[in-house]
């Protein structure tokens, strides 16, 4: 069955259900438990954030919001399942920036379309990455690090969590903009990467701000720059990369989405509930320890989230093209 005819079929199934149960009107939504798919493994920080939010939603909307982890294949498993789910307003996805704007450029024949298969509900949070060095490295800021590298090109090793993950892409962008040749060393566990930077084997690393906070505090790692074009609240003294190099605005973020064709009124109700949930004081208090900055304002509306997604999609595509990243 082609994708199009499958969608018609699904819509038919959904419609017959709606008739049978006589519900699915936004006014009395939700009538039964709502599923929120997390395309990541249970227990890592996006999952924890999603559970905090769904906990609030369950209370606010009076129905249980169930988190379902469908991890695997770089978010593809979970995204694909929601792209094909019934669009009756009882399935949502807690999508990552990797799933929405990186995968289309790195995975050949991606089985879902981040723009056409989904409708944005609300932007939820951004995560921040920091460039850090071992304290023995004789560089106090990004300019000095670049100068140090240029004295002996290819001598510095940089620990990242995979060349196509956000930290790896930031590293490649720095190398390209600054003309440096730092060697990327991929680690699939954050802990080993941090450990090897503390011991000095990989003098430089790029990590999520929350992960490295204790090591910055006790002096075993020194922050050099914050990824993006502005400083962050938890590290006010650390300059943004854009203060030294052409702005690299690559960052991680999370957005709640619904399958395309979900009734607009339900999307609207959900969006308002999410915006309210992520503005609650205890959520705002917990977010920084998980490494997130909660979203507020226009991006939390469906229209705002849509234009944010479109801009990020185009921007990431352009950066990856400049870096010469090919899908495989």
């Amino acid at each position: 069955m082609s994708k199009f005819s499958r969608r018609i079929f699904m819509a038919g199934v959904a419609a017959s259900f709606a008739l049978a149960s006589g519900s699915a009107q936004a006014a009395d939504w939700p009538q039964r438990p709502v599923t929120v798919v997390v395309p990541q493994a249970a227990g890592n920080s996006p999952d924890v954030l999603c559970r905090i939010i769904t906990d609030k939603l369950s209370r606010a909307l009076g129905q249980q919001f169930i988190v379902e982890n469908k991890a695997g294949a770089a978010n593809v498993v979970g995204m694909q399942s929601v792209a094909r789910a019934t669009n009756d307003g009882y399935t949502f996805v807690f999508a990552t920036s990797a799933a929405l704007v990186t995968n289309p450029y790195t995975i050949k024949a991606l089985s879902y379309d981040p723009i056409k298969d989904f409708v944005p509900v609300a932007m939820v949070a951004k995560s921040h990455h920091v460039l850090l060095v071992n304290p023995k490295v004789k560089a106090n800021n990004l300019a000095e690090l670049i100068a140090l590298e240029k004295q002996a090109p290819g001598s510095l090793s940089l620990a990242v969590d995979g060349p196509r993950n956000i930290s790896g892409l930031i590293a490649q962008a720095i190398n390209k903009d600054a003309g440096t040749k730092m060697v990327l060393v991929p680690y699939n566990t954050i802990s080993n990467a941090v450990q090897d930077t503390i011991s000095g084997r990989t003098p430089v690393t790029i990590q999520s701000a929350s992960v490295v906070e204790p090591f910055i505090k006790d002096g075993s790692l020194r922050p050099i720059a914050v990824a993006g074009n502005q400083r962050i609240a938890s590290l006010p003294d650390v300059p943004a990369i854009s203060e030294t190099l052409k702005s690299v605005e690559l960052q991680g973020w999370f957005m709640i989405m619904a399958p395309a064709g979900t009734p607009a009124a339900i999307v609207e109700t959900m969006s308002k509930a999410v915006a309210k949930a992520i503005a609650e004081p205890d959520v705002l208090e917990r977010a920084p320890t998980l490494g997130f900055e909660m979203e507020k304002g226009d991006n939390t509306t469906p229209a705002g989230a849509k234009s944010f997604l479109a801009a990020q999609y185009a921007y990431t595509g352009q950066i990856l093209k400049e870096l010469g990243v090919e899908p495989n």
Partner: peptide, 22 residues
Amino acid sequence: IPANAVMALMVGAMTIHGIIPG
């Protein structure tokens, strides 16, 4: 530094409660 997946979850649990392991 968590040694395995379960330990990584414990780190998650600690951070939720506002304790940064280290």
